[in-house]
């Protein structure tokens, strides 16, 4: 082997070493999971549809033409029309906006509040831990949908309130997961070391502990979006969430149920939209868990 070739080879090795990173490793593992990738593609597509809804939707989702009511799917209305003569495809497209927004927002709120509470409880332990976690246990002991309905009754109907209600009821799960991870991480030598050199508690939590518990939070958050979407739909179905005339999948399902026998497309398409989206988030969440925590898989 010539000198130049040797140098090139060692350079290549160096290149490999330099470009190796946890993120890249994670991406490589995730890419192998075909279901998770398909879900990711579906969700990216759905997000684009939601963002560009006004340009994509063939009709105005809230402008009904009564004389066109309850039409079966046709070339004019791909998914048919509802009882007020509104185009179902357009309503599903606009409904994606609400479902995704509510899902992401609710999870973002629940996750940030839950993470803070969970890490405080886990890090400090003792009485603070007891107060926070017993409170979370009380909330977990109620069926989450029931609790959400109770919050809606207190807050009033509407999307914003649905977001608040859902984030409150899902928060305890995040708090528990974060607390558990913090508990296991905080006894590690590097944390002890950080404390020994005089770091403040907040710095230790956010700089040293948080990066090590981020993986379970991401996984839980992704799965949590699907729960949040389902709960929005359930609240909508019960007439508590999104208010007419706005389109939301659960509300569409609830309104269409009395036409189940003579116009099944009214419930079928919103039902399919909910199922696909929730399934995609679940599969993606599973994929993320496998990719982020290879030990679990083996």
């Amino acid at each position: 082997m010539s000198e130049t070739a040797k140098a090139a080879a060692s350079e290549a090795v160096l290149d490999n070493i330099e470009t190796y990173s946890p993120v890249r490793e994670f991406w490589r593992r995730l890419r192998k999971n075909k279901l998770a990738m398909a879900s990711l593609v579906f969700l990216v597509g759905l997000t684009l549809v939601a963002i560009f809804a006004p340009y994509i939707a063939p009709y105005d989702p809230i402008d009904g033409v009564m004389s066109d009511s309850l039409q079966k799917p046709s070339s004019e209305h791909w998914l048919g029309t509802d009882e007020l003569g509104r185009d179902i495809l357009s309503r599903i497209i606009f409904g994606a906006r609400i479902s995704l927004r509510v899902g992401l927002l609710a999870v973002a709120i629940a996750l940030s509040v839950g993470t803070v509470l969970g890490s405080i409880a886990g890090y400090f332990g003792g009485r603070i831990d007891n107060i926070i976690m017993r409170f979370m246990d009380v909330m977990l002991s109620f069926p989450s949908l029931l609790l959400a309905i109770a919050f809606m009754a207190a807050l009033g109907k509407g999307v914003e309130n649905a977001v608040i209600a859902i984030s409150i009821v899902t928060m305890p799960e995040y708090a528990r997961i974060v607390r558990g991870s913090v508990l296991s991480v905080k006894e590690n030598e590097y944390v002890q070391a950080a404390r020994a050199i005089g770091n403040k508690d907040a710095a230790i939590i956010f700089k040293h502990i948080m990066p090590n518990v981020i993986a379970p939070i991401i996984v839980r958050g992704t799965l949590g979006i699907s729960t949040a979407i389902l709960e929005t739909a359930a609240l909508g179905f019960l007439g508590l969430g999104v208010q007419p005339p706005d389109a939301e999948w659960g509300t569409m399902l609830g309104a269409g149920r009395s036409y189940m026998f003579n116009a099944p497309h009214l419930v079928m398409f919103p039902g399919i939209a909910i199922t696909l989206t929730v399934m995609a988030f679940n599969l993606l969440g599973d994929g993320l868990r496998d990719a982020l925590d290879p030990r679990l898989k083996q």
């Binding site: 809230i62 402008d63 009904g64 009564m66 009882e83 007020l84 509104r86 007439g239 007419p244 005339p245 309104a255 009395s258």
Partner: peptide, 16 residues
């Protein structure tokens, strides 16, 4: 017989 949907139909008409 349609309950709340009557209100939604009227909402739809008035919006126009």
């Amino acid at each position: 017989t349609v309950g709340q949907k009557l209100a939604e139909a009227i909402q739809n008409d008035l919006q126009k």
